[in-house]
Amino acid sequence: MKYVIMFTTTPELDAAVPAERAQEVYGRIYQWFGENSDKIADSGAELQPVSTATTVRHGDDGPVVADGPFSEAREVIGGFSVLDVPDLDTAIAVAKTWPALDLPGVAVEIRPMVVDYSQFEQ
């Protein structure tokens, strides 16, 4: 099954992490991608900080463009990858080893991808 795993962080907590520690975790993230290459279908992308986000939102008179992320949540998405593994337990096991989980405010969301489009055919 294919899953998108979304790496989220809490910017206000990130700021408190010493640069050295952040660097060390970053190094392990490189390793992590290497170690899990057989389970990663698409390494995805790391995103620029949320301060660079722009959102285009539904408006009554057409789409409205605004500064900032789509959600007011404290957590923001920092990147994503695509896993191809047999089941959710394997995806959870991979996600649990995400090095940044050592840092407070970090979370990984796992979402199965729609791969069977037969429901839309007619």
Binding site: D87, D89, A91, P112
Partner: peptide, 8 residues
């Protein structure tokens, strides 16, 4: 969810 999320 068991079906869609692939819970074994």
């Amino acid at each position: 969810k068991i079906g869609r999320a692939g819970i074994p």
